[in-house]
Structures are given as C-alpha cells and as structure tokens.
Amino acid sequence: MSDERYDANFIHRQSFIELDARERAKALFDPGTSRELAGPFDRMESPWLPMQGVTPQADDGCVVMKGKISGQAAVVVALEGAFQGGSMGEVSGAKLTTALDLACADNEKGIPTSAVMLLETGGVRLQEANLGLAAIAEIMASILTLRKYAPVISITAGTVGCFGGMSLAAGLSSYIILTREARLGLNGPEVIEQESGVDEFDSSDRALIWAIHGGEQRYATGLADALVDDDTQQVADAVRRFIAKGVPPVHRSSQVALYRNRIAALDTSRQWEPKELRATWGTSSFAEEKQ
C-alpha cells in the first residue's frame, strides 16, 4: 500500500488546484475522449438565484463530462469552487445525481462505467436551502446505488475543501483522493465556533484547522485512500489506479463495527491532539512507512 503515497520531486508539474472545474474534469480522461454534457450553452442555470438578486452561472457551477479513462467508460462531475463556494443548488445537484444514475443504468446494461466526483464545496447553497439539502440526499442515494457496480471516486484538491452535506457524499465514496491543500469535514471551523463557542474551536487557528481537516491528517488516519501532490498527472494516475482496483470488498462507510469501536475507545473528557489518532486509526501502510 505504500504506493499510495508519492514523492514530490516531479520536475514538470502542472498544478491541479489552479485549474477550473472544466479543466480539472477534462484532465482526468484519456486525451480526446471527453465530452461535456449539459454544458453552459444548455443554460441549465439556477432559477432561484436571479430572483434573489444573485448572478447565476450558465452551468450552475457543475461540469459533467463523459468519456474514457484507461479505455473504460467514465463520468466525471466537477464542482466549481469559485462559483458560490461550490455550493449545491437544485440544478448542480440534479446534474450530479443524474450523472450517477446514468452511469448506474449503463452498468446495468453491461457497460462498465465509473464515476469521479471533484468536490470543492461548502455544502448546501443557502439561497436554495431545502432544495440543496434534498439534492444532497438524492446524490447520496445515487452514490449508494452506483457503487455496487462501479467505483465512485471522490477527489478534493483544494482550495475550497469539502464540507457540509457533501462531506457525507465523500464519505460514501468507494475511494477518496486528497491533496495536502485539501480539507474534508462536516462542519467548518467558523460554523463550529459560531454554534459551540470559541473555546470549542478557534476558527482563526489555522494550524488547528489543518491538523484536523487537512488532507495529510485524513490520509494518516485512514480516512482517505490516497494523498497526492498538487499535480495533475498524480491526480489522474490515482484515479486510474482506483478504477483498476474496482469496487472495494467493503466500503468505508459500511464498516460500522470498526468505527463504532474506535469511537467508543476515545476519551471524551478532553480535547485531543489530532495526531494522537494516527497511532490508532492510521492505515497499516502509514504505520509501516513511519517505522
């Protein structure tokens, strides 16, 4: 499993984080095989934003591309973190759900089709509130259906991170790929500070935020399957590796007894140093690597 980590010494690196959602999606396919579906010229924009005085985007911040990865059919759905914080609205949610459902239907027809989700999102778009939350519930349902047939891979590269309800979508994925610039969690620091007080979480403490939500910590505690550099080739290679692996024997979110026991073993009378968890939660590969 030590091949899950890469050395950082590539000379010709192309930043993945600097790409927009469309470029990110395209970069994962075999060259010349991808095609965008329901693109900007189909103008599936949010009907709810203009009525609240907010400028919509022609693709609602969600890019759907279909094509081939390692010669096999795949769909990539990329959220644009620069538009409304990558938040899920009615249309962006429907795009993601439908893409997963269509991949599922193809698998049922005997056409193996994997799905990749590029999650840069704060979760529900509050201007669409209940329709955003409902969309996330439907996305989760569609991930559960598809992942029986084909791997559903989620990638968070940065800089937005993956928070709110969409962190549950990541949690349901077959594989999670993160960079060191990625953050993954249910509640962001500001929300926790607001709801539970600054003593619970000081949202200005950058080191604490990265120690808890950062990609390196998530990987070191066995909560992500690959930690890659901010390099397009590394991200694309990791996707290919997980597609080749196929559906995992047991999904992480189905390992209830394992995680329930881990939670039961925690001392809740104090706050923890996040690194403490690495010893007990870390993947065996990580533990081996440290030796």
Binding site: S167, G171, L172, S253
Partner: peptide
C-alpha cells in the same frame, strides 16, 4: 470524522 459517521 463525523462526516464518515453520518455517511455510515
């Protein structure tokens, strides 16, 4: 990782 607990 409450995100994973919720997902579970």
């Amino acid at each position: 990782a409450i995100f994973l607990a919720a997902a579970a």
